[in-house]
Write a protein that binds this DNA or RNA. Structure first.
Lengths: 185, 185
DNA sequence: CTTGAATTTAGTACCTGTTACTAAAACTTA
DNA sequence: TAAGTTTTAGTAACAGGTACTAAATTCAAG
């Protein structure tokens, strides 16, 4: 990696490199492009690319909230109504990060995660999800649409809870699922 | 926030604070606990908590790969075998981040995401997930276990693909699901 | 009340990865 | 060859630290 490009080409490659790996220091870039560190800095300045620490911080910040809302301990979506043991409603605002790039369609597991987590929220206990059946994605959801999930406990048998979840986007149903949750004592 | 604690209590709170918000500088912590910056540093040293930049970097690094594997464009899990239009196998190493804190049981949507994404991978096209049925989580998966997902295309009808996915943990089946995928032209 | 240990504070030198700035050198191109 | 562009060199300063030494303060027990 010691080929010398001229300015424009180098700056293109620089952008590319940094979007691939935002963790590269100016010094490491020096070696990649075989120019002085000043040149790298001028390039970053011209391209409006912030310094390493800022880049890392952005990656961290973006994903910090993402992790909290998908994979974190909190429920996916915002809980707006809850009658413990009976029913609950949550709202999830979708965005581009949850969608396929080309089609802008929300990835299924985000919808599933909302459904799963509202189902668990209505049961106030340590719960294991052991069975789900009869899931249906009725229509694709686009980034930006607001998902409203309603969960209802329909039957309790021993430590097993049967919960139905329906998700709507402005009156139109986009998802339904029947969950079987097992409470762990 | 200017109450003075003694060492042990302060260190407990410090750990808590930083796990809530790892972006706090020593200086900000000084204000929170109303002690000198040296004390904060001693505390971090004793508790083995790295400096701000390291913390931010860790958040960024963790999520950089996490986002690529959950929510990102790539598939969830590692693709180890693929016969396009027919079948595929992926492996997902689970960890604590994917699990419930108390029970150490992997959250359902991670398993679902792996299943969904291997199902989509076997169909080489822009695909929308419109229907899933007959999902079953047979046994809870614990953090650290390795999930092996096998997907198989069982029927094609027009632009609809019927895919079965089975996920095993060391021979034992933990999940099965039937997906209906619609190819977008 | 005093002595000794634990705890906290103060201060210095040094580190990394930078910004901001000045100035010189090296190459293009007319 | 002169002028302009691009690159390099070098300096001071900054944030957010580490690592270390030493002094001041607090606390507990005799």
């Amino acid at each position: 990696m010691a080929k010398r490009f001229k300015k424009k080409e180098r700056q293109e490659k620089l952008k590319e490199k940094l979007s691939e790996d935002p963790f590269l220091t100016d010094e490491e870039l020096t070696e990649i492009f075989d120019v002085s560190i000043q040149t790298i800095r001028l390039d970053r300045l011209e391209l409006g690319i912030p310094e390493l620490r800022e880049r890392v911080k952005h990656v961290a910040e973006n994903n910090y909230s993402k992790v909290r809302s998908l994979g974190g301990k909190e429920i996916v979506g915002e809980l707006v109504d809850l009658q413990l043991g009976k029913s609950g409603i949550s709202i999830l605002e979708t965005d581009k990060n949850m969608a396929f790039e080309k089609t802008n369609v929300i990835r299924g597991h985000h919808i599933f995660a909302q459904a799963e987590s509202i189902a668990m929220a209505v049961i106030d206990a340590d719960v294991a999800l052991t069975g789900v059946s009869n899931i249906k994605y009725k229509t694709p959801v686009e980034a930006g649409e607001k998902l409203i999930a309603k969960a209802e406990v329909v039957r309790i048998r021993g430590n097993k809870y049967f919960v139905h979840v329906f998700i709507n986007v402005s009156q139109k149903q986009v998802f339904r699922g029947k969950f079987i949750l097992v409470v762990i004592e």
